[in-house]
Structure formats: structure tokens, C-alpha cells
């Protein structure tokens, strides 16, 4: 899923400082699963913003709603009847949300309340880690299910590099050296020779290097 963190309250208050009536829109997709932008988080942020503005002596009318997904135009229709009743709209979805909303309602102003971070999963309750960099050409099978693109700080495909020490990356003690793990796993499975295979250069045009990407499924198009 897409993993995100909420922006600091002060930053969000600054965005809406001139507004008196604001709508806060949550998303029931990825950000609900990573506990950042679902119905509950919308209620908590909404209450926090109202309390903060009341404390400043400038109370705000802040309504809340949470839609199925902000990355599908049909669900954005859920706010069509009310979108023009506000000075501005806060989106509690990943970076896709405010953009899809802006495209659906060009006359309204949209603001992000969360920072979108990466594609990953929960390794324990309350901890999410990056697992996919969306490079467009998956190579995971060559590294026994461990992705060096997403999990190596340098995204190298022939590691480990000289910065690997005791299974950790030189960038931070909090980062596992995935190449150390890949080599260990190959050794345990008696397949270390796999790493001697000379592979073609990776085609990075399928990643961001080729510009913004698009996926077209002809059989699904109208």
C-alpha cells in the first residue's frame, strides 16, 4: 500500500489561516490502512483544527467526510454537491488525492494534509517499511524475493558495497543492508553462484527516468 505520515498541525493551520469554512476529505484506501487518513484520522484532525482555531479566537467551520477512494473519479462525485460551499478543501489522501480533486473541481482550492512517503507494508504494529520503488520492471525473482532497488540505499544490483558493515547500511544504523541479507540467503540455499551471473543493464526508462508514467489496459477502456 501507499504509506504516508500526517503533516504537523501548524503546517495545516497555516494553509487554511485565511479560511472560515473548510471541508476535510478522508480516503478509505491505503491511508486508512496505514492509519493516516481514514475516517478516524479525519475526525481527530478535524477536532484538533477546530480546537486550535477556537484557541486563536477565530473559530472555524470544519466539516468532515471520508470517501471510498480519492484516486477514482467516480468516488470524487460524492462531494460534487457540497464542494463549492467551502473556502478551501483539505485532502487526507496520498498525493494522488488533492490532484484528482483539483482536476475534478477546477474552481476549488485543495490542500494536502499528509506527506506521501513510499510503497510498503507493516512489519509490526505501527511500523511500516518501504518494499517497492515502482521501477516498472520487477527483478525481485533474481534476488530471492528481496528488492535491491527499493531496499538498498544506492539501489545497486551487484552489492554489497563497501558501506555495508555487520548487516547494516552506512547511511543509517536503522537501515538493514539488503545486500548482506541477499548474500546470506543465497549462501543458506547453496545458490551463491547465482550472483556471478552477468546481467544486462536495467532499463530505467520504465521507472521515473522515463518521465511520468501511464498504464493503459485496452480491454478495460470504453
Amino acid at each position: 500500500m501507499i504509506v504516508a505520515d500526517r503533516k504537523p498541525l501548524e503546517e495545516i493551520l497555516e494553509m487554511i489561516k485565511d479560511y472560515e469554512k473548510v471541508l476535510l476529505v478522508g480516503c478509505k484506501g491505503c491511508v486508512t490502512v496505514c492509519n493516516v487518513g481514514g475516517r478516524k484520522e479525519v475526525e481527530v484532525l478535524g477536532a484538533a483544527l477546530r480546537i486550535a482555531r477556537k484557541k486563536e479566537g477565530r473559530p472555524i467551520t470544519l466539516d468532515e467526510t471520508t470517501i471510498e477512494r480519492q484516486c477514482d473519479p467516480e468516488y470524487l462525485e460524492q462531494i460534487r454537491d457540497i464542494h463549492d460551499q467551502y473556502d478551501g478543501i483539505l485532502s487526507m489522501a496520498c498525493g494522488v488525492g488533492p490532484q484528482f480533486l483539483s482536476e475534478a473541481y477546477p474552481n476549488q482550492k485543495f490542500y494536502p494534509t499528509i506527506n506521501t512517503k513510499f510503497m510498503g507494508g507493516a512489519t509490526e504494529h505501527g511500523v511500516w517499511e518501504e518494499r517497492c520503488a515502482g521501477c516498472g520492471t520487477c527483478l525481485i525473482h533474481k534476488y530471492d524475493g528481496l528488492c535491491p532497488i527499493a531496499r538498498c540505499s544506492k539501489s545497486i544490483m551487484h552489492g554489497p558495497c563497501g558501506g555495508s558493515a555487520k548487516g547494516q547500511c552506512e547511511v543509517s544504523d536503522d537501515i538493514e543492508c539488503i545486500w548482506d541479507t541477499i548474500v546470506r540467503k543465497k549462501m543458506e540455499q547453496g545458490r551463491l553462484e547465482d550472483l556471478r551471473i552477468i546481467r544486462e543493464n536495467k532499463d530505467w526508462r520504465t521507472a521515473r527516468d522515463g518521465g511520468p508514467r501511464k498504464s493503459i489496459r485496452e480491454e478495460l477502456k470504453k
Partner: peptide, 11 residues
């Protein structure tokens, strides 16, 4: 009891 119950009470 969740954070939202406390927030609502404070609000």
C-alpha cells in the same frame, strides 16, 4: 476509549 472520545470532550 479512543483518542477521538477525548478530542470530542475537549472540543
Amino acid at each position: 476509549v479512543d483518542i477521538i472520545h477525548m478530542m470530542k470532550a475537549l472540543e
